[in-house]
Design a binder for these strands. Structure first.
Lengths: 151, 151
DNA sequence: AGGCATAAGTCAAACACTTGATAGTCGTGA
DNA sequence: TCACGACTATCAAGTGTTTGACTTATGCCT
């Protein structure tokens, strides 16, 4: 009853879990971007290449759904990566105007180099936290997603 | 012969802690954006107003550093919020061309309304996780930031 | 005092992403 | 068979952000 619902703004607003989440994600993402830059690859490019590598033959629309962006954003990225020869668009066997996305050898090579950087950051985090806490953090984060989605 | 030592690409790359972190942050941020939209306020606006409220008289450049964006992005936001009468720029006492940022009464009111929404999402997350796990999650996230920064 | 380094703010161009609208292609069912 | 619906891809316009270069103001140092 003595909750300070009277003055919700200002007290502890910066100590919230969702703020800590944002700060942590920003820190990690900034570091990734910074270390990926010398390789001439943005984090978004890495994410896309990794997704295609994980499941070859994905369509742009399917990719858009997985990465939570619009199909146009995907098209723009794909055009750029295709121009670099890291990605290729093939015609779907049945649906003629649908395009399957596949990595080229150059794309696999670039992804490999980029993933070494990302894996290094991942290791830096997991080493800093320890194996047990890392697993727990991942579990907690998955529960957050679940909590948000099932509202 | 040595094809892919340990095959770093492709195995478990999507199970990484930093991916879980990104997914969780994306989910939370999307929900915030979605619920803030009816109030005519973007998440970035809320973040800026809250920062200024937390420490009144901040400069644009200082704000840019805290929020991990460029000064131009701040200037754009500030111009918009100033146009709405939620924020005002005052001349710094010593440095003439430096501008201190302060909330107006309308700004405080808008922030109050927006914070009710954000607090609701925060409650949704903490209720879903429980008090103990919420505290632990926050502690783990802070350790992640610390690990990244002290590289 | 003069000169230089530091820092804040702003302008212009490029890039990325979103929203809204349009066209092409396939499967289904009347 | 053929029209309807669902899905994919793409174009156009608008918004927001970054990068790079420039201007202005302050403080320190010789």
């Amino acid at each position: 009853m003595i909750r300070n619902d009277e003055e919700p703004v200002g007290l502890g607003a910066l100590d919230r879990v969702t703020w800590a989440l944002r700060r942590a994600e920003l820190a990690v993402q900034s570091l990734k971007e910074q270390q990926l830059r010398p390789l001439g690859m943005a984090a978004a490019h890495y994410t896309l290449l990794m997704s295609v590598h994980d499941e070859s033959g994905l369509t742009g629309a399917e990719l858009a759904r997985r990465l939570n962006v619009t199909p146009q954003a995907i098209a723009s990225l794909v055009a750029r990566l295709e121009g670099r020869g890291q990605l290729e668009r093939r015609e779907h066997s049945r649906h003629r105007h649908i395009q399957e996305l596949h990595l080229t050898d150059a794309g696999r090579e670039a992804l490999h180099a980029a993933d070494a950087v990302i894996a290094g950051i991942e290791r830096q985090v997991t080493d800093g936290l320890g194996a047990e806490d890392s697993a727990q953090l991942r579990a907690l984060l998955d529960r957050v997603v679940k909590t948000i989605r099932e509202d």
